[in-house]
């Protein structure tokens, strides 16, 4: 069978589908001071997944927490990668209490594209990954 670390090189999704892969990628991103991008990506997925079994109040609290931590500060690594229109859309949702399971989808896609084009290829060439393999 293909060893997991070879699968990680196939696509970002193969990497993010494996616990050890996530751990190593996060170590790399931490070194590059952009681990928040990965945490944000998972927070968006988690947010979307929770809607079925969580009450509205918890969803609102969570949406506010994600907004505050990653989007509100314009100098944050995540906030800098998200388009202004996407940020105002999320801000609007939070302010008007329009909590929707898909409200972070566009922002997540923008961060994912950034990782696919930038940090993920760098990771595959990094010492951290090469030493691991």
């Amino acid at each position: 069978p293909t060893p997991p670390y070879l699968k990680w090189a196939e696509s970002l999704h193969s990497l993010l589908d494996d616990q050890d892969g996530i751990h190593l990628f996060r170590t790399f991103l931490k070194q590059e001071e952009c681990a928040d991008m990965l945490d944000f990506w998972f927070a968006c997925s988690g947010f979307r997944k929770q809607e079925a079994n969580e009450g509205n109040e918890k969803m609102l609290k969570l949406a506010k927490a994600i907004y505050k931590k990653y989007i509100l500060d314009n100098n944050g690594i995540v906030s800098r990668q998200i388009k202004p229109a996407t940020k105002s859309f999320i801000k609007d949702c939070v302010m008007k209490l329009h909590i929707d399971p898909a409200m972070f989808d566009q922002a997540q896609t923008e961060i994912q594209t950034m990782m696919e084009e930038n940090t993920y290829p760098l990771f595959l060439k990094s010492d951290i990954y090469l030493e691991y393999t």
Partner: peptide, 20 residues
């Protein structure tokens, strides 16, 4: 009551793949 950070951490963990 969960603090915001706990809530966020719980949300992030819920999206991670389970150990194979």
């Amino acid at each position: 009551i969960d603090s915001e950070d706990d809530l966020l951490q719980e949300c992030i963990s819920s999206a991670m793949p389970k150990k194979k």
